[in-house]
Amino acid sequence: MEKLHLEYPAGAPATQRVLVGVVASGDLEILITPAPAGRCHITIHSAADGSATRWRAQLERLFADGKAAAMQMEINDFAATPGVISLRLAQALEELSA
């Protein structure tokens, strides 16, 4: 199991909690809770060893511009494919802004 902490600049605090997904084979669970303005804290537990680079790349695309809401994001990944990860992240962020 791999454990990763990533941080990105962010905007105003998120306004709600979000949960998507399950820790099922090839899937993942994402929990979002609001955090103080300015930072996103992302914690990843991944069953896929050696996936750190891939995770950085995927999250970089979404969070590097610093425009996301400030949040704590917790990801529990049971070896999801990059496609499933993208889908779940998009779903989580969409529900957050809903």
Binding site: M1, L19, V22, V23, E29, L31, H45, S46, A47, E74, N76, D77, F78
Partner: peptide
């Protein structure tokens, strides 16, 4: 589970 290196669910 985490003590055994297995990803847990919240």
């Amino acid at each position: 589970l985490s003590a055994q290196g297995i990803v847990a669910q919240a």
